[in-house]
Design a protein around this nucleic acid. Sequence first.
DNA 1: CTCCATAATCTAGCATTGCTAGCTCCAGTA
DNA 2: TACTGGAGCTAGCAATGCTAGATTATGGAG
Lengths: 194, 194
Amino acid sequence: MTAQRRKDRERAERHRLILETARGIAEADGWDAVTTRRLSEAIEYSQPVLYSHFTGRTAIVDGVALVGFGELAGALRAALAAAPRPDAALAAVAAAYLRFAGEHPATYRAMFSMDTGLTFADESSPEPLRAAFAAIRDALVGVTGAHDPETRTELAWAALHGLATLDAGHRLRPGHGERRLAALLGLLGADVPG
Amino acid sequence: MTAQRRKDRERAERHRLILETARGIAEADGWDAVTTRRLSEAIEYSQPVLYSHFTGRTAIVDGVALVGFGELAGALRAALAAAPRPDAALAAVAAAYLRFAGEHPATYRAMFSMDTGLTFADESSPEPLRAAFAAIRDALVGVTGAHDPETRTELAWAALHGLATLDAGHRLRPGHGERRLAALLGLLGADVPG
DNA sequence: CTCCATAATCTAGCATTGCTAGCTCCAGTA
DNA sequence: TACTGGAGCTAGCAATGCTAGATTATGGAG
């Protein structure tokens, strides 16, 4: 049964290849360019192979999103751990969040802006997403009175997400990202009444 | 030439009908359900008629987005005008913004989350969008020290947009919208150092 | 080493999509 | 009343996601 073991490994590798290739095409030419034909050609397999790994095109997008959640959680945790002092942690985490969104716009879109089959906000929420949420909350708790941290974390997340998506859509003034981030940190750092 | 006048009127009316129907289908069954065939059938014309009004499907989405910008700007201006005192204006505007996004999710998607041919952030930005931005800024200026109002307006907008989109994607705890809005208003109302 | 059953992979094609070429037919003019 | 221009439709193309059925490779039994 050692042959089976090897096949499983090759299959997992190809699974990874599909996701990586899809992500690459999406980051290069947008998600519309990720057609099953182009993707299958890029991985040098025929289209039906894709369907032996994923239930359909949207499942592939979901797969990329999941990888993204893992990366984002890692980046936030790393920023949190590397921050010298608690009050610097929030700035580091926020900057890391916006950097991730800016450097991987298509991945970020898959995670947050595309019709998805993933479920959230309940127990079946992907673990990496919960980890990313926890990183933001931990950073916030370190800097503020920690009154109702869940709500404040949701709010900080929403602000970061709004900045990321509006900026990606060129809805905000270019070149003012630093200033906006500073303003956000100023708000979040301040004690909130109520 | 009175016949021409009538034709122009009918044509404008049909233009409006197309946008309204497309929006209705999108709000009912999502944008994926807005196919040129279903849309043309709903307006009781053949498909090519759509292309005599719009350059393509995305132009129709853009048209709905533009209508949405107009409505949003109107709602924000109304909220601003109806607020009894300046410090209540911000709460009214923010609530109106989230209400609009919650009541017309597909329209809101067309405005902010879909690949669009519209341009923003420069002079050619749609006028209604600039009007909506101005309404938020005016509300903010009334409540705070108005230091760097452009940046603070972008930030407030981003927070509202983030709350709207994450909530629409069921990424936030249900039933806590009021609390999040209150927390946001608390942050924005507080004076920010720097 | 050979044969064969199983699994893996591909070829070919379906239904649906956005979009368009070219015909038809009707309204308005002389 | 004949004619012309344009408004609208029928029919069809290329591209998409997806799948059925044929085909080839794999690996164990004799």
